[in-house]
């Protein structure tokens, strides 16, 4: 049973690490997507202002 406990700890550690990594990647992708949208809006506002001037 000692061997199975060792295995359980190893499996658990690895699956948690992969879970954290996957979550981080998805979050980063979503965060950048929002930032890009915000910047695109800012650039549009700026170019509209420049055209009006």
């Amino acid at each position: 049973m000692e061997g199975m406990t060792y295995l359980a700890v190893a499996y658990f550690g690895m699956i948690v690490a992969v879970g954290i990594w996957t979550y981080t990647v998805v979050q980063r992708s979503r965060h950048l997507s929002q930032r890009m949208d915000a910047l695109e809006t800012a650039v549009k506002v700026y170019s509209n202002d420049s055209n009006e001037e």
């Binding site: 061997g3 199975m4 060792y6 295995l7 190893a10 499996y11 690895m14």
Partner: peptide, 10 residues
């Protein structure tokens, strides 16, 4: 360590 052999599924 036969139990640890199962690590190979990872």
């Amino acid at each position: 360590s036969p139990a640890a052999q199962r690590i190979f599924y990872w």
